[in-house]
């Protein structure tokens, strides 16, 4: 076990370095950040540009720039935004909280919707409820995020407002001049959370239902029933535990994406999170910010992949490390 984990970590570290190196070069291939920064300013001179480049260390060769960046990251310093001069760590710190509020809530709501529905659907296979769930999950599974977001916004924010019904806010975390309390936050959370949760619940339901059905067909379930165990106990002790195995892995992998946010959803609902930080920084080629967001997102994917593998092997003794 220890050897397995050590080996995986030893593979993960050079991989992360390689990814950051590739991304570092890719970001500069998008365009020249200083040219983007000074574009449209007629009074800027060649000397100014040279001075700005020197300031950011952009006059040095690219490999050296990368090493400087890497050295700083190892010491916990992500540099500062070339646009606002704010430290990247504090920018990310501010956005990460917002993203976690949105994504964390969506994650919990997804499970609350998906698990009971998938269970009932699988246990009553071929009932009208099962057909309804299978059909709806297929439809929602194919729904683009922006279209569901559009429909929810249109109905519950715009139309309800026009009809004089109590409507939900259309975006942001709080109203511009409104109060900033928990109630306001929850009101602003409803639509984006619903958008995210309905879509990912559709995927979970399909997955979990299939998993439960597969377990229900196993011999040990027949054995459990044959020895006279109550149905409720069979389901709780044998079906649920085994069906949860693959789903737990999926859930752990999903946790990694919670931190990088949902780019499209945040963009639709003007949610000030990591996704919109990335989009804004992309427009300016604000490379310290971009690298910071990407570094965190990628490291989390790698770490949670590792955790998922270990958890799977831990939960299922039939799996051996190799």
């Amino acid at each position: 076990m220890v050897r397995y984990i050590t080996r995986r970590v030893l593979i993960a570290i050079p991989m992360l370095l390689l990814i950051t190196l590739i991304l570092f070069y890719a970001i500069f291939a998008v365009g020249d950040p200083v040219a983007r920064l000074t574009a449209g300013n007629p009074r800027i001179t060649e000397q100014d540009i040279a001075r700005i480049k020197q300031n950011f260390g952009l006059d040095k060769p690219r490999p050296l720039q990368y090493l400087v960046w890497l050295g700083n990251v190892v010491r916990g310093d992500f540099g500062e935004s070339i646009v606002s001069r704010e430290p990247v760590s504090s920018m990310i710190g501010r956005r990460l909280g917002n993203t976690l509020i949105l994504m964390g809530t969506a994650f919990v709501v997804t499970q609350l919707i998906a698990i009971p529905i998938a269970l009932v659907s699988a246990l009553r296979q071929y009932s009208w409820f099962d057909y309804l769930v299978t059909g709806l999950s297929f439809v929602f599974y194919s729904f683009p995020v922006f279209f569901l977001g559009f429909m929810l916004l249109w109905i519950f924010s715009v139309k309800f407002n026009q009809w004089g019904l109590p409507s939900l806010p259309s975006g942001k975390m709080y109203d511009v001049r409104g109060e900033r309390n928990l109630f306001e936050l929850v009101k602003h959370l409803v639509l984006p959370v619903l958008t995210l949760a309905l879509l990912s619940a559709a995927g979970y339901v399909r997955y979990l239902r299939a998993s439960v059905l597969e377990v229900l067909g196993q011999d040990y379930i027949r054995t459990a029933r044959a020895k006279g165990l109550w149905n409720a106990l069979v389901i709780r002790r044998h079906v649920l535990k085994n069906a949860a195995l693959p789903v737990v892995t999926i859930m752990i992998l999903e946790l990694a994406s919670l931190f990088s946010g949902a780019i499209v959803t945040e963009s639709i609902f003007a949610w000030p999170g990591m996704g919109s930080l990335f989009i804004d920084a992309m427009g300016d080629i604000d490379y310290p910010v971009l690298m910071g967001v990407l570094f965190i997102a990628t490291s989390l994917v790698i770490i949670f992949n590792l955790i998922a593998d270990i958890a799977y092997a831990y939960l299922d003794p039939r799996i051996s490390y190799s």
Partner: peptide, 18 residues
């Protein structure tokens, strides 16, 4: 593995930019 470690929409946006 490497390509799957970068969230796909981030990767897509950066490559589209490149």
């Amino acid at each position: 593995d490497l390509m799957l470690s970068i969230p796909s929409l981030f990767l897509l946006i950066i490559l589209a930019g490149v």
